[in-house]
Computed example of a mutant assay.
Amino acid sequence: MISPVLAASPQPSPAGWESVRDDFLAFLVTAGWNLLWVAVTIASALLLSWIMRRLISRVVDHIVLGAKSRAAAEDTRAIDMSPLAQVRIVQRTRTLGSILTNIVNVAIVIIAILTIVYILNPGVLASFTLLSAAIGAGLGFGAQNIVKDVLNGIFIVAEDQIGIGDVVDVGLATGIVEYVSVRVTHVRDVNGTLWFVRNGEILRIGNMSQGWSRVVIDVGVPLDADIDAVEDAMLTAAKDLVREPKWRTRILDKPEIWGLESIGGDTVITRLVVKTRPNAKDDVSRALRKRLKTALDELGVPLPQLASTLLTGADAAQSIRGANPPKTKPQQVTPPTPPRLAWRPKKRGRTDGEPPEGTAAP
């Protein structure tokens, strides 16, 4: 038996049911098209990102291969001696490639998100002005470090301060640069630890892979040793090392004896320096120490001390140009003018002027 209340309640007409059905079908069609366009946007973003990464990779590989082929010229040593060597072009190109890849990925993601938001609700972008103002205020107060990291990273790469493969000292870490982005730099030290250094925290950079390096070896000998004979043996051993084909391309200049460096206790310190390629400094230093040890053993001179030296501070500043300081032209010194006498005897025929008091007349 049907309740009187249910019987009295209005029942939807067939036309009403058709209207609800049509509205539901229209919603499904609109949602389906929106989802389809969202999928197309995501697929287009992924395809564009892949194309751009492939294009950047092809350009980087083309520049790297070109630099390597040009480095095979006859005057390879002159190319390596230049601060703008081909290896710097390779390292800088790879660094710029990684930076451009990051920028392209971020730009594509932002554009894809805005497109998806517009597809789902076009009215949201109408209030984008307020949203951008809020984002700007948030960046001004809460994201200052991120902005600082990005700006500093752009300047570091643009000025070629760091390149992938460089051996650098950034204060917070020392090692080989493995990756550079607009925000962080990856540095792996000699122990294998990977350091993530924010670009905004880098206050100074010491790049050990640009231009050239210098091996500085201090040789300590007893006080009674013949210093001239020791220096001749050291220089001969270093020159023999330079003549070998293995080391000829790694050493950029002839060895130099900077002479007697210090005298302390029972040891006399003599300094030998060799200018090398940046990536060959440690190898040349090891080989040179071995040669020096053999040469001084043949000379019969014991070695209380034989160590590589890293000059810092005032010693580094005074030794930048080594044992060959710049020559200056001698300056002529004009002799001072003799002071004028307070009184001079009057000449013949003149009546002016009388000798001062207390002075005898001529």
Rank of each mutant, 00 (worst) to 15 (best):
M1S: 09
P4T: 11
V5K: 02
L6R: 08
A8T: 14
S9V: 04
E18T: 15
S19W: 03
V20Q: 11
R21W: 12
D23E: 09
F27K: 03
F27Q: 04
L28I: 03
V29M: 05
L35Y: 10
I42K: 00
L48P: 02
S49P: 00
D61R: 08
A67I: 13
A71Y: 09
A71K: 07
D75R: 13
I79V: 07
L84F: 11
A85G: 13
I89C: 01
Q91P: 00
T95F: 07
I99Q: 14
N105Q: 07
A107C: 13
N121R: 04
A126R: 00
T129K: 00
G138C: 10
A143T: 00
Q144P: 01
V147H: 04
V150N: 04
L151W: 10
G153I: 09
F155D: 14
I164A: 11
G165R: 05
V167H: 10
V177A: 15
V177E: 03
V180H: 06
S181D: 13
T185L: 11
H186M: 13
R188M: 08
G192R: 07
T193F: 14
F196M: 13
N199H: 08
N199V: 12
E201A: 14
G206K: 14
G206A: 13
Q210L: 15
W212C: 04
S213N: 03
V216F: 09
D218E: 12
V219A: 09
D224S: 04
I227S: 11
V230Y: 03
V230T: 08
L235K: 14
D240C: 02
I251F: 09
W258D: 15
L260R: 00
K275M: 12
T276Y: 11
R277Q: 08
K281A: 14
V284P: 03
V284F: 00
V284Q: 06
R289K: 15
R289Q: 15
K290N: 14
T294M: 12
A295T: 10
D297F: 12
P304F: 09
A307L: 15
S308C: 05
A317S: 12
S319Q: 15
G322I: 06
G322D: 02
K327A: 03
T328F: 11
K329F: 01
Q332H: 10
T334P: 01
G349I: 03
P355T: 10
P355Y: 08
P355N: 11
E357W: 07
G358C: 06
A360C: 04
A361L: 03
A361Y: 12
